[in-house]
Design a protein around this nucleic acid. Sequence first.
DNA 1: AAACCGGGGAA
DNA 2: TTCCCAGGTTT
Length: 352
Amino acid sequence: MEASLAERLVSWYREHRRDLPFRRTRDPYAIIVAEVLLQRTRMASGVPYYERFMARFPTVEQLAAAREEEVLKAWEGLGFYGRARNLHRAAKAITAGHRGDVPTNFADLRALPGIGDYTAGAVASIAFGERVPAIDGNAVRVLARVFRLAGDLRRGPARRRLMTIAASLVPASEPGQYNQALMELGATVCHPKAPRCPECPLRTMCGAYINGSPQRYPKTPPRQHIPVVRVAFAVAVRDGKVLLVRRPPRGLLAGLWALPGGELPPKGSTTETLRKVLANLGLSVRLDEVAAPVEHTFSHQRWVGAVYHVSVVGSPRLPESAMWAAAEDLRRLPLVPFHRRLLETRFGASLR
DNA sequence: AAACCGGGGAA
DNA sequence: TTCCCAGGTTT
């Protein structure tokens, strides 16, 4: 009798799994934190955040009791900040529940903010042993190759076909180990560009490998054009402090602190536009020099421009949305896009 | 169904 | 430079 896909996967996983911090716990809260934190985030980037986040918020009760700014601060530099807000909301929902415990099944987990099909499946299977799939980008790639799945597997009929197959493969015994094994194989062996097929436990049952072209799967749709946006920001310094403003409550980097300025109109003088922005904040300023270039790519647009160093002249009447922060205190704020790391690496010299 | 939401590391 | 990562929500 040949070993099944699940059996091969799990036995391979037992020998080759990486020793990751969230694999050392059965605490469902910790599993949720890890899964949310790793959404669209590489392991190497996310793990240090996971360690810090769990040290700062060891229990769901402590996370629920925290202020949102504290949660955002722990997320600073990680991106997709809606994840932090939703995780915070989920913690509040959990502690407000009947017993204050983390939901123990897929449907109830799925109902929490920020927890979709993948995360609900991962937590339900890993923490509670429920027989449900957890299909992330790695799993999609592995299954696409093994079963030679055509079409855009992210949506539409191809996606539904994939999910049907995925659900049927999950074993009743140790579904959490199986799910992690499938993802681990995709992350460490079944690479997008250069899969290491000779090391793969599914080699002999992989349609794409047998067919000779695993790189053809999954099919990647043409990427969309990334528009370039002209921007200018000001480092407005007074008495060793830097002026910050809150970004709008919705949209890009919503509600986070940033340097004043932003997108420029297609026409007009950069310095004049910046001067008007600062004037609207009640500031009369003198533009001293260009402090640093801005060049930053977000998920759907590329910012190109400059940061101007300005001296504040006169007495400003600032709206409530603006504040002064000591340069040293910037590290205590959830700053984006100019959070602490960006400030230090790109504009550090201008903040002293 | 499509748009939107960050940032970084690897090739 | 391009790709894409332990995805989810909104419109």
